[in-house]
Amino acid sequence: MIFNSAEPYATKFCDYLQKPILTSVDAGTQFNKPSVTIEDINSDEKCMFYTGVPNKSVFYALFDEMGDASEKTKQNNSSSSSGTGRPRSLRLIDEFFMVLMRLRLGLLLGDLADRFFVSKSTCGVICEKWIEYLHLKLSFLTTWPSREIVDKFMPKKFSRKYPNCRVIIDCTEFFTETNQSLSNKSLLFSSYKSHITYKALLGISPAGLITFVSDLWSGGISDKQITKQCGLFELCERGDAIMADKGFLITDLTTPLGISMILPPFKTHRFSRREVEETRRIANLRIDVERAMERVKNFRILSGVIPITLSKKVSKILKICVDLSNLQPPLVHDDP
Rank of each mutant, 00 (worst) to 15 (best):
K224M: 10
T251C: 09
F233M: 15
T29D: 11
I250E: 07
R273V: 15
R147Y: 10
D245A: 09
I282K: 05
P163Y: 05
D334G: 08
T211H: 02
M1F: 03
I242M: 04
R102G: 00
S35T: 12
S119I: 08
S194G: 01
D223K: 03
I38Q: 08
L62R: 05
S181Q: 14
T227S: 15
V276W: 14
M154Y: 03
K312N: 09
T279E: 14
H269S: 07
Y133A: 00
A27H: 13
S121W: 04
V53N: 04
G85S: 09
N179T: 08
D40F: 13
D334Y: 08
S5F: 10
V150D: 03
L107E: 08
R280G: 06
K185L: 13
G239F: 15
D334C: 11
S218G: 06
K312T: 08
H269C: 02
S272K: 04
N326H: 13
T227A: 15
D114Y: 11
G67T: 13
K316D: 14
R115Q: 14
E177W: 00
T23D: 10
T143F: 04
E39L: 08
V125G: 00
G247A: 07
N77L: 10
G83R: 04
A200V: 14
F96W: 07
L253D: 06
I308F: 02
S260E: 10
K316H: 13
V58R: 03
A241M: 11
N184S: 12
V322A: 02
D335S: 04
S190I: 11
A241E: 15
E128R: 04
A61V: 02
F3H: 09
T51F: 09
F266W: 06
S82D: 12
M48C: 05
F31A: 05
F96A: 01
L22R: 06
C127W: 05
Q328D: 04
G203V: 10
G203P: 09
G239C: 08
L17E: 09
Y50M: 04
E277W: 13
I221N: 03
F266V: 08
K12L: 15
T51R: 04
A10D: 07
F3L: 12
K74M: 15
E237H: 11
F13K: 03
V118R: 05
F117W: 15
L108R: 03
T122C: 04
R291Q: 12
T255M: 14
M243Q: 07
S43I: 10
V150M: 06
P145L: 07
S121D: 07
R86F: 11
E234W: 07
Y192H: 13
K129Q: 14
K129N: 06
R104S: 01
N4F: 12
L302D: 02
G247R: 01
Y16C: 14
E71D: 10
L202C: 10
S89K: 12
L22K: 06
R102F: 14
F174L: 13
C321Q: 10
S80A: 11
S146Q: 09
T122M: 04
K56H: 09
I287V: 15
F31H: 12
T29I: 14
D40M: 14
N4T: 13
D68G: 00
F248G: 07
Q225G: 02
S81H: 11
L235F: 13
D215Q: 01
E275Y: 11
E290R: 01
L216K: 00
I41P: 03
I2S: 10
A241L: 09
N4I: 13
R274Y: 11
D288G: 02
